[in-house]
Amino acid sequence: MSDHDHTHNDQERGLSRRKVLECMTWAGTGVLWTISGGVPHSLGLVEAANAAETNGMTFMQISDSHVGFDKPANPNALGTLEEAINKVKAMAKKPSFMIHTGDISHLSKAAEFDDADRIISQSKLDVHYVPGEHDFLDEEIKFYRERYGKGTKGAGYYSFDANGVHFVGLVNVVDLKAGGLGNLGAEQLAWLADDLKGKSKSTPVVLFAHIPLWTVYPEWGWGTEDGARALELVKGFGSVTVLNGHIHQVMQKVEGNVTFHTARSTAFPQPAPGTAASPGPMKVDDAKLRSVLGIASIDFKQGQEKLAIIDTPLAG
């Protein structure tokens, strides 16, 4: 049985029709997309794999490695990061590059960043990082910037282009306000507006940031206060994919031409919204841990409106 447990690929093309898509696990091997108010469409894993073979570009997403974390939920977060990187190394088709959606370290210690770099560099891929709140904990808030902040603006946002896709890495973990959620801030939003100016609306856009840009569960702070303003700026684009971490579980939503997706952590799982007293690390049976940690590969096919996202657990 394949260990690919989710496949997202909406092959329907149609910018004008707003569709509500639901994602259902299909016998543990793939995912069935159902389209409410339209023709149901499903895509099995074999189709996804074939699609990937003919595609121009695949990139990886890893998230929330929390190097340094050693609590009961996973006493060896560095070890599971290494397992995740081994998964990437073993991929039949070498991804073009990798994005890391933050919380590289657990406590922003130099040794934690060093350990993370030592393991992640084994993938031999270019890695584009955005910071999580755990990466800005050192007294002078300098380790992240020194290592990953070169050529970035503000607290570390930037954009780049690859294979005709425009990627934007955003920072929503600084200047958080009491009682609030994640925060992009006026300066970054102004930069984003400027960055997107002049881009053809047919350019696929990928926004990635640590905390979900859409409101997943405000009671646990899972959302971004001014995320809607960023989404407003990409409204006219035909294909928008929003990739986040922070919540240590796969969650997705498709709204019009925007696909939202959160990746698993490589360190420890967190509970589904509202199912526990807090969003803290969730202790699962040792045998089950690797089924709730993992990586995501994102496949882009020229002429395709949506990107196909395949989440792969470390095991199970």
Binding site: E133, H134, L137, K177, A178, G179, G180, L181, W220, G221
Partner: peptide, 8 residues
Amino acid sequence: YFCSLHPH
């Protein structure tokens, strides 16, 4: 007061 990492 609040937690600057988890402002909720």
